[in-house]
Design a protein around this nucleic acid. Structure first.
Length: 258
DNA sequence: AGAAATGTTGCGCT
DNA sequence: AAGCGCAACATTTC
């Protein structure tokens, strides 16, 4: 599943091909997760052209010239594919046909990807927004929850997933299991810095790895959350711990605040 | 071949 | 009683 950096690059690549293209047809397959009907969707966007494709948290948004927006959350297994005349991709949930013969399919074999017409604005800051500064981070560390769980909670800060939470916490030299309210001010500062640094760098890496990418995920360059690596860049052994069915990778270089 | 992985929701346990 | 783990979703990928 793609995380924030992948999604950010997908949005840029989708926008590059779709901007100013007119939507000719939209087809919503019956097993798609949505509160919107095929008819409502078509009424809202067919005939309009794409004004922007962008990312908000882990959701991609297609904004049209008439201000209507289609939000797509890929969840675990959602994927985009370009197709020509005929869409041959299995588990298709949504088909979008644009001018100039450009067509886009959304697939998800788990049928969990969520399609939303005009998603409502959120007050929760995106991980890469300016609002995520030292002060904001300090303010969300006011509980005894493990710091990793706070980073992952989309109601607190949007966009960080399991893999990048591990990368960020290693970069900030802080154990994922630290009690948030035991982290000193310097830790909050380090965390704010690492969030930006790790995610921005990953966006560059993903973009470089595959030009025009709109699906899948690129994770070979991850330094800690990476099953093929035994040691951190500075040589410490990487430990893998399963919790809630998901792996956390970390090293003894990371300070545990308890 | 069998395990691992990925996000979210909602539930039950402590 | 806040915070955690777990199950479910279901197929692909290693």
């Amino acid at each position: 599943m793609p995380e924030l950096p992948d999604l950010e690059v997908f949005a840029r690549n989708l926008q590059r091909r779709l901007k100013r293209k007119k939507l000719l047809d939209i087809r919503l397959l019956t097993d798609a997760v949505t509160k919107t009907s095929q008819k409502e969707l078509a009424n809202a966007v067919v005939g309009a052209s794409v004004s922007a494709v962008y990312r908000e948290g882990k959701e991609l948004r297609f904004r049209f010239s008439n201000k209507n927006i289609i939000g797509i959350h890929l969840m675990l297994r959602g994927k985009f594919f370009w197709f020509e005349d005929k869409n041959t991709h299995s588990h298709t949930l949504l088909e979008l046909k644009f001018s100039a013969g450009i067509n886009l399919a959304l697939t998800d074999y788990q049928h969990r990807a969520v399609i939303t017409l005009n998603p409502k604005e959120s007050t929760v800051p995106d991980a890469l927004s300016k609002a995520v500064n030292e002060k904001f981070i300090a303010s969300i560390l006011q509980s005894r929850a493990a710091v990793k769980n706070i980073l992952l909670d989309q109601h607190i800060i949007r966009g960080i997933g399991n893999a990048y939470a591990d990368e960020i916490l290693w970069d900030a030299a802080m154990s994922p299991f630290s009690a948030a309210n035991q982290i000193p001010p310097a830790g909050a500062k380090a965390l704010a810095r690492s969030i930006r640094k790790v995610l921005q760098n990953a966006i560059k890496q993903v973009d470089k790895a595959e030009k025009g990418i709109i699906g899948g995920e690129i994770r070979d360059f991850l330094q800690i959350h990476n099953a093929s690596k035994k040691n951190s860049p500075s040589g410490a052994a990487i430990v893998k711990k399963m919790t809630a069915g998901r792996p956390t990778y970390y090293t003894a270089e990371q300070q545990l605040y308890k």
